[in-house]
């Protein structure tokens, strides 16, 4: 309260602050636009597009559909597709068109589109070796018994799947029928040759 303090009062103490009129740096505007764009891309990928059914961690209704439990024929097909994509699709392709020089196509193949399925069931259980003609083209094959390790139910689902996908329209295969084929082949079946297969009943 004394006089000595007055000298230490800063001169600006009771004038209102001033403000400069320099412009906003351009880079912050550019950064804003970049962040807005990236944010929108992120939102596009993770938001499920305002779908009230899609909760995190799922990002879209398609992704959610993938994990939905199915029943009946749809469940069998979904199970077949899951195993096919994982085991068979590596060579035969997930589109069933095969790979040149490696594995013949399954789509439209005369070995798949058959009335019965005893022969077809034997292929994944025993494997194939040697010459085989598929859709008019001869293949030299060495297919291991890829299905031998699958359970009867899984293999039945895979066979049902390949017989009803990519334009194939044949009846389902049941687990009991796979089981019957497996016991008919015995413990350590040898790969079949083309000749052997064409002599087999369908």
């Amino acid at each position: 309260m004394s006089d000595e303090t007055k000298s230490s009062i800063p001169p600006t103490s009771d004038t209102e602050p001033s403000v400069s009129r320099s412009t906003v740096p351009v880079w912050i505007i550019v950064l804003t636009l970049v962040l807005l764009f990236l944010g929108m891309v992120y939102f596009d990928h993770h938001s499920g597009w305002f779908d009230s059914q899609v909760y995190g961690p799922y990002a879209s209704s398609e992704e959610l559909e993938l994990y939905q439990p199915k029943s009946g024929a749809a469940a069998l097909l979904a199970r077949g597709k899951a195993h096919y994509d994982q085991v068979c699709g590596l060579c035969h392709g997930i589109d069933g068109l095969g790979k040149p020089g490696q594995a013949p196509p399954l789509a439209g193949s005369e070995w798949v589109n058959t009335k019965g399925f005893e022969r077809l069931t034997h292929i994944p259980l025993a494997g194939v070796s040697g010459q085989l003609s598929v859709k008019g083209q001869t293949w030299g094959l060495a297919m291991p018994a890829m299905g031998a390790a699958m359970s009867d139910e899984d293999l039945a689902a895979v066979l049902t799947y390949i017989r009803s996908s990519w334009g194939n329209k044949d009846g389902p295969v049941t687990a009991d029928e796979v089981k019957a084929a497996r016991s008919a082949l015995g413990a350590h079946p040898l790969p079949m040759s083309g000749n052997q297969m064409s002599k087999m009943p369908e």
Partner: peptide, 11 residues
């Protein structure tokens, strides 16, 4: 809550 809400908040 539906995924778009936390996603919007995060963005």
């Amino acid at each position: 809550v539906p995924a778009w809400m936390p996603t919007l908040s995060a963005v």
